[in-house]
């Protein structure tokens, strides 16, 4: 009897974990796929520097244009201020969903060239 209960509990826990994992996992996609899917994804790419960036402080939106590995570009609107180390980032990971051709981002992670182990200073 105890083993049956234990079994049921374990199965229930695994089910909870599985569904949470499925609903909580955010796949990495490129821009084309993200446009197709229209659900929350992550896109790895880089900031198109030439197109600039701006922070709209009234509405708390940070805007920039990103480019993915396929060189496709998309405007990004991040709800929030400019992420840390944005300018020096070699790549950005943008989490959000595409709506009307704009990536509405909830989070932007910046990946920096390893700042602690960079080259020697000019002395």
């Amino acid at each position: 009897m105890k083993y049956v209960i234990a079994g049921i509990v374990i199965v229930a826990l695994m089910a909870v974990g599985y569904f949470a994992l499925v609903s909580g996992s955010v796949p990495y996609e490129d821009i084309a796929r993200a446009e197709q899917l229209g659900k929350t994804v992550q896109i790895v790419g880089s900031w198109v520097k030439e197109k600039g960036s701006s922070y709209d402080e009234k509405n708390n939106i940070f805007r920039f244009t990103m480019k993915d590995d396929q060189d496709r570009e998309i405007p990004v609107e991040l709800l929030g201020a400019k992420p840390n180390n944005f300018e020096i980032a070699i790549s950005v990971v943008v989490k959000g969903r595409v709506e009307n051709g704009t990536m509405k981002a909830s989070n932007v992670l910046t990946k920096c060239p390893s700042k602690y182990e960079s080259g020697p200073a000019k002395s």
């Binding site: 909580g24 996992s25 796949p27």
Partner: peptide, 14 residues
Amino acid sequence: LPKVAVATDYYNNV
């Protein structure tokens, strides 16, 4: 498989 990150929702939900 393609790389997937886990959102904080996962931890909160479980």
